[in-house]
Amino acid sequence: MTEVPSRNAGGHGQAEKPVRLSGEPFAWRHLLYLAPGLALYALFCLWPVIQTIQFSFHRWDGITDARWVGLRNYIQVFTSAQTLTVFGNGLIMIIFYAVLPVLIGLLIVAIMTRIRIRLLSVFRTVLFLPQILATVVVAVAWRWIYAYDGPINALLSAVGLGSLSRAWLGDFDTALISVGLIGTWINFGLCMVLFIGGAQKIDTQLYEAARLDGAGPFQEFMAVTLPGLRGEISIALVLTVTNALRNFDIVWNTTSGGPGTSTLVPSYLIYEGAFITRNVGFAAAASVVLTVLILVLTGVITRLMRSED
């Protein structure tokens, strides 16, 4: 959010100061401009959030009267073994959705900083494609890739590793990793595009100075590229960490949380509690915890990436 420049700055007492526009910072009719948007926003965004918080202090099956239970739902979120595993799975998703794509992006940009890239716009368009596809489409495509008769197993048997082939999404050992790697695929292109764009804005004199000081490629990356990309890394992490924790669509459309509970993630648990097992209060508490987790993580990321300057 860029700060709105003050229209009044230096304008006091000047003849051309437009009375209509800056003279009355508040007028009832100004509310008319805001009313349509704010009314919808309040009704379908803010009010539901307040209600969710309210539900989280109740025991409620969605039909009969709700009963006030204080913090009991929250205690259950933080003590039940299943919930902790599920939130643990959410954190594992961060590794696949956020950490891996950022590392891949950085690795690639480290190779790229010394060269001018041909056909950059073509690469950008293609690398960005996973971001614009509907998650359901992505899930359907990857279900085929991971299928027992799909490309991955075909590739394995072609190179003589056929004994490793399996139904990747249906196997207790590989389901969570397989779902996570879909997230890596969705986000790696975004990170590459962000970082390549950022690296091109770094002053080339910094690289020349580093080279004059005798820096090798690695030192050059640590001293020039990495600090220069701080803003982009922060954006990439905020986006991908949020993606990782809101990973409902992919799980619903690939494994439905299974096999067993091995790919159960927080949003799926919330959906189940709210609409299937009808443990509404608990689901509300879990969604408050998830929201706070997202807020805290994104806050920490932006602060960490900014404060070092």
Binding site: M1, F44, C45, P48, T52, A274
Partner: peptide
């Protein structure tokens, strides 16, 4: 104040409002 209020919606996941929306 309006910007601050809107800021909340910028980071809010659907999970935080899905239950009341369904009820409504």
């Amino acid at each position: 104040a309006v910007f601050a209020l809107l800021m909340i919606g910028l980071v809010l996941p659907s999970e935080a409002r899905i239950i009341p929306l369904y009820n409504f």
